[in-house]
Design a protein around this nucleic acid. Structure first.
Length: 580
DNA sequence: GCCGTTTTCGGCCCGACTGTTTTCAGTCG
């Protein structure tokens, strides 16, 4: 089993223990172990036979090593199964609702036998929550809203999860002789932040009509399949254990481009493209572009030849949303979208000084390996007590160490001193201006001010960016995909004011964050607000997540020129808001 | 359940916010 799945089992066990109000410290060690498993670079299945090696991972002791061995052997662990008899698996889903913790799940179960989102919804509409302690009007309304938001997103998966699932399947399919090209289509290819299901298109000699059956059988024999939905002539559909639905289509080379175009969507883009085809006497299907009068073949092997036959430049999948991309493709004015390799630095990251997992030096080395020219170390400030946030004195010491590492790197990379300072309830920052003045990169972030009225929330953030030392606004909307809609904030007003002040707004590239949606990013570009894209890395491996954020920027039509950290080190600093 | 020991058990990042209290529990980061 892969590390991610092991981590998930451990973390679910922690949740269940918490619902059963187990020993809080025992619960914490399950969570810590889950985190450790997730972030270790060692593949656990490779060392599962050796309990000593497992225990070398910090957070894994004797008992947890045994648990992991049991998971490898049996696919689950006894404690979890035991708890799932007592409680219901659907309770884990309840925990995902905003404001729902283990205590509330336990309460609803004991008092009302409510164990799922659907049952909770019914209980609310029947007014059964009213008699429960701690649940007044506001709490109930919050839950109602939370369920609504949850239902909007449920059944969708974060882009990185979908991509990992796609990569594994692709590696498996590649082992079959005669399969040459495999590509994900659908919303994954368009770079949507979440995907509903996975569309994989396959071609090669093995997909020719007369021989495709063997390749179809091979696909249907993919070991991780949890539930085979359908196996047809050239299509296999199934669910993975995560619930993600996958459709694999095996197509002859001649129609591969047409299929890729068709299944990449979006729906509205395709409608417009087909209308255009009809106007020119063609008809476009997932098999080919053909003449209307006699059905004769015009194009189909590649997307390029199809778009070209319609008088269009090839359109990057991220732009296929019927937002003017056809007009631009016709006039040859499609933008040169930003690419991963344009990014020269990641300027929001944490170290062991607060809640990061690596040292300053380790982060710097990892950034060198990625080819970056600079990074900024921006640990938390004291208001985030649980992260061991820095106060003025510690922040000053930390800057000193950052400068030392910067010198150690001897120009291989620049390491800028910075801080992610917290915005307090009154819009003030929790470190002194004297200290902030020492930092190259001051990111002001909202962290813990949920459930404020929108006007209040917006006023606080606007107040915070008036502080002349603030150079970047960190996770400006605070949204967490699939879990919560985000802070209630007038992001338009914030972006406009940031533009006036010269404060950059951050797009957090981490897949469950992806702070700004494409609408916000387009607005930022429109009003001249500077944008910086960062991963908020708490571990060297997190820097990899940059590519998911890049897709969002591309979807918003952004180019290299629109993003601050595509600049070389000196120019980057110079482009930040000038210090007083 | 992990860790670090004064090796055998005690300590384990904690403060802010909210809504419900009438002194606090639950959730969040």
């Amino acid at each position: 089993m892969d590390n991610r799945s092991i981590a998930q089992l451990l973390s679910e066990t922690a949740d269940l223990l918490e619902i059963g109000s187990g020993d809080p410290f025992r619960i914490r060690s399950y969570r810590r172990a889950a985190e450790a498993v997730e972030s270790t670079t060692v593949q656990l299945s490779a060392i599962a036979g050796d309990a000593k090696k497992l225990q070398e991972i910090p957070g894994i002791g004797k008992g947890m090593a045994a648990n992991i061995q049991e998971i490898e052997k049996a696919g689950t662990l006894p404690l979890r199964e035991e708890l799932l008899v007592k409680y219901r698996p659907s309770m884990l889903e309840l925990l995902k609702l905003p404001g729902m913790g283990p205590k509330s799940v336990a309460l609803f179960w004991e008092a009302l036998q409510v164990s799922s989102v659907a049952e909770l919804e019914t209980a609310i509409s029947e007014g059964k929550l009213k008699d429960l302690p701690r649940f007044g009007e506001k709490q109930i309304e919050k839950l109602r809203k939370g369920i609504e938001d949850y239902k909007k997103n449920s059944g969708r998966f974060l882009i990185d999860e979908a991509e990992v699932a796609a990569e594994k399947l692709i590696a498996y399919l590649r082992t079959f002789p005669g399969i040459e090209t495999i590509e994900p289509a659908g919303s994954l290819r368009r770079g949507r932040e979440t995907v509903g299901d996975l569309d994989i298109l396959v071609t090669g000699p093995a997909c020719a009509e007369d021989v495709v059956q063997a390749a179809v059988d091979h696909t249907a024999a993919y070991p991780p399949i949890a539930n085979l939905i359908a196996k047809g002539q050239n299509k296999v559909s199934f669910n993975l254990r995560s619930g993600l639905q996958v459709d694999v289509r095996l197509l002859p080379k001649g129609s591969y481009g047409a299929a890729l175009q068709y299944f990449s969507g979006s729906k509205m883009h395709n409608v417009t493209v087909r209308q255009r085809a009809l106007k020119r006497g063609y008809t476009l299907s997932e098999y080919a572009l053909a003449r209307v009068e006699d059905g004769s073949f015009v194009a189909g092997a590649t997307e390029e030849e199809i778009y070209a036959a319609l008088g269009l430049d090839w359109i990057p999948p991220e732009l296929r949303e019927n937002n003017g991309e056809l007009e631009a493709a016709e006039k040859h004015t499609l933008p040169f979208l930003i690419e991963q390799r344009d990014i020269r630095g990641d300027v929001h990251m944490h170290t062991v000084a607060t809640d990061g997992k690596n040292t300053i030096r380790e982060m710097a080395d990892a950034a060198v390996a990625r080819g970056y020219e600079y990074i900024a170390i921006t640990d938390h400030s004291k208001n985030l007590a649980m992260t061991n946030g820095l106060d003025d004195a510690r922040a000053l010491e930390h800057i000193q160490r950052i400068r030392e590492v910067d010198a150690e790197m001897e120009g291989q990379i620049r390491v800028f001193p910075g801080i992610e300072v917290d915005i307090l309830g009154d819009g003030e920052l929790d470190l002194s201006n004297e200290v902030l003045a020492q930092m190259d990169v001051v990111i002001a972030s909202v962290h813990s001010l949920f459930n404020q009225p929108e006007a209040e929330m917006t006023a606080r953030v606007l107040r915070a960016i008036e502080n002349p030392y603030v150079r970047i606004l960190g996770h400006p909307t605070g949204r967490l995909l699939l879990r919560r809609e985000g802070y209630q904030i007038d992001i338009g007003a914030v972006i406009r004011r940031a533009a006036e002040l010269g404060v950059a707004v951050e797009h957090n590239a981490y897949p469950d964050r992806l702070d700004l949606c494409d609408r916000d990013l387009r607005l930022a570009k429109e009003v001249g607000c500077k944008i910086s894209i960062n991963t908020d890395a708490h571990h060297t491996s997190h820097m990899e997540k940059m590519r998911y954020g890049i897709k969002q920027l591309r979807r918003a039509w952004l180019t290299k020129a629109d993003v601050l950290n595509t600049l070389p080190a000196k120019e980057f600093l110079a482009a930040l808001r000038p210090r007083p």
